[in-house]
């Protein structure tokens, strides 16, 4: 394994949902040990991209390589083996609702290792400590706030010490405090455990704050990529509109429609 080789390499990715083109020739490199943000307007298939990297969906064309393995070609057994080294934080947290926090974090450890109970307990408590929720171990998922549920899910995602974590919209619907906590956690986890992180988000400020590198996707293509500073001062009108959240620009405020006067005066 060469350290400066990207952990994830995507080449000429094409993916369709029915007749709709989601990705049309996307190339992405995710460097090892860095936080890479993948940004773009809602509905551009950012979550789909994570599912493609995790092998839950298969591309129509193109290649997806994770740590040297072709995810798009792996059989079920190899795919599951590879997934043990990947963590994913779902937008909803995706905690199992019928077992308490402790058991949720212990779940992947119990499934994949034969460790004795005393060791599992220590591991789980350490993981919960890392996200600041050691005291919440006996709560049920429905007793957690949205931000807490996401942190428990994060503890579960790092339970098996994966090589990478994929975050699906980690900042959506969070209050400023839990947003700050998550931003800090993602960065801290990445640096402390030498993880590779992929953050899919449309929260420009937060994503730019933690990312080492940013990809912007829209209409099935990579529009631009580069370091956060370069993106913020991008000369591209589109990127400037997206990064600064302007209402009008290359992405028009109005959905395509006939002229207003014509519409108002015309017959229904």
């Amino acid at each position: 394994m060469i350290d400066d080789e990207p952990l994830v390499t995507i080449r000429n990715l094409r993916f369709f949902r029915g007749d709709r083109v989601i990705f049309d020739g996307v190339d992405i490199d995710i460097p090892r040990g860095k936080v890479t943000a993948i940004m773009g307007p809602s509905g551009t298939g950012k979550t789909t991209l994570l599912k493609l990297i995790g092998g839950q969906l298969r591309p129509a064309a193109g290649t997806i390589q994770v740590d040297g393995e072709r995810v798009d070609r792996l059989g079920t057994r190899d795919l599951y083996r590879l997934r043990m080294r990947m963590g994913m934080l779902f937008q909803s947290g995706a905690l199992l609702t019928d077992i308490p926090v402790f058991e949720n974090v212990a779940y992947p450890i119990r499934e994949h290792t034969g460790l004795p109970e005393s060791l599992i307990r220590k591991l789980v408590l350490l993981k919960l400590e890392a996200v600041g929720l050691r005291g919440a171990r006996d709560l049920m998922p429905h007793e957690l706030s949205g931000g807490m549920a996401r942190r428990v899910a994060l503890a579960r995602a790092i339970a098996l010490d994966p090589m990478m974590i994929m975050y699906d919209e980690p900042f959506t619907g969070q209050d400023p405090i839990s947003m700050g906590v998550l931003v800090k956690l993602i960065r801290a986890l990445n640096d402390a455990s030498r993880l590779t992180s992929i953050v899919v988000s449309h929260d420009v400020r937060e994503a730019a704050q933690i990312a080492d590198y940013i990809y912007i996707i829209s209409n099935g293509k990579v529009i631009e990529h580069g370091a956060p500073d370069a993106m913020m001062s991008s000369s591209s009108e589109w990127t400037a509109q997206f990064m600064n959240g302007l209402a009008d620009g290359p992405v028009p405020f109005h959905f395509p429609a006939p002229g207003l006067e014509q519409d108002l005066m015309g017959e229904s």
């Binding site: 839950q56 043990m84 994913m88 779902f90 995706a94």
Partner: peptide
Amino acid sequence: ATEQLSGLEMMAVNPVKR
């Protein structure tokens, strides 16, 4: 609907079997 099955898959746990 709450992505629990997807979550299991990504934890390398087969939801059909489990």
